[in-house]
């Protein structure tokens, strides 16, 4: 029981701190790759705190509503992750937040927001089936969708699910909104169509969305860490290398179109999942 409470607190409090830190490191490394000095590592926290200190400026009440629902759902999904709950349930709860964020963007008539919302829906459409298939792969290895069962494994999942890990990385890239998949919104100065579906969120509501995004980053990186959950070093190495690759890809790739993303990611993702799942089936 006490362990559960501690895990809930870790999920609810430590996760966004970690997410913010990751975002800070990300900006620093990106700056390094562009031979710049870059902002301090704590920069994302300064940004969010500043946003909280700003005036409330709204287009309508729905955005406010949706931003709060979004952060609740993302927080819940991370807490469920730390409670070692069911993978599919976690995905669905996360989808709840993502969908409400899109609905909030749809609720304003701003063309930027509308375009962003449509594109975000395409991004959700692209990564959701892939994540489900990754979970199926995990199920075929462990016989369960519960994270607690995965942690009981003695062999890293990566050994039997290498291709599905790559598929998960596609989903991670989309979810992190990194190039070449950053067209619903984009980080800092990339601003795809003046920041896509975030256009009309401002001040503290933008801050809520940002914190929600940190939760999501932690969740997806957490999913990555499950692939080498047998040792802490493994987790650190795997997640670190994966994230470094993400930053590298972000910096060397150009933004593509959504048609390309849907076609490419589905083709590659489904093909790799199929191959990997058939291996497992064959055993």
């Amino acid at each position: 029981m006490i362990r559960g409470v501690i895990l809930v607190i870790i999920g609810a409090v430590a996760a966004p701190l970690l997410g913010g830190l990751i975002a800070g490191v990300d900006r620093r490394l990106t700056a390094w790759l562009q031979s710049r000095y870059g902002p301090p590592i704590w920069q994302p926290f300064f940004d969010v705190i500043k946003l909280f200190g700003k005036e409330r400026l709204v287009v309508n009440g729905w955005q406010v509503f949706c931003a709060h629902v979004y952060i609740t759902a993302t927080m819940l999904s991370v807490v469920l992750f730390f409670l070692q709950s069911d993978l599919l349930l976690i995905l669905f709860v996360q989808a709840f937040g993502a969908i409400f964020l899109v609905i909030g963007a749809f609720s304003t008539t701003s063309p930027y927001s509308q375009v962003g919302a449509n594109r975000e829906l395409i991004q959700i459409l692209t990564y959701e089936p892939l994540i489900v298939l990754v979970f199926v792969g995990i199920y075929l290895v462990t016989g369960s969708f519960k994270i607690s069962e995965i942690l009981a494994q003695t062999k890293p999942l990566l050994v039997s699910l290498p291709l599905l890990y790559i598929v998960l990385c596609y989903a991670l890239t989309i979810k992190l909104r990194k190039s070449p998949f950053d067209f619903s919104t984009s980080h800092h100065a990339h601003q795809e169509l003046v920041k896509g579906f975030l256009t009309e969120y401002s001040g503290r509501y933008l801050a809520l969305v940002e914190i929600g995004h940190w939760y999501e980053v932690v969740l997806i990186l957490g999913l990555c860490s499950l692939f080498w959950a047998t040792s802490w070093i493994g987790v650190l190495v795997l997640v670190g290398v994966t994230y470094l690759c993400e930053i590298l890809i972000d910096n060397i790739m150009a933004r593509m179109t959504w048609q390309w993303m849907l076609g490419y990611v589905w083709t590659m993702g489904l093909a790799m999942s199929f191959v990997n799942l058939i291996w497992l089936h064959g055993r």
Binding site: R27, R36, P39, Q43, D47, H188, A189, Q191, V194
Partner: peptide, 14 residues
């Protein structure tokens, strides 16, 4: 590199 001061060039007054 003004980003070292945390300055970001945004495209949206909001």
């Amino acid at each position: 590199d003004i980003e070292r001061f945390g300055i970001i060039n945004v495209g949206n007054p909001k």
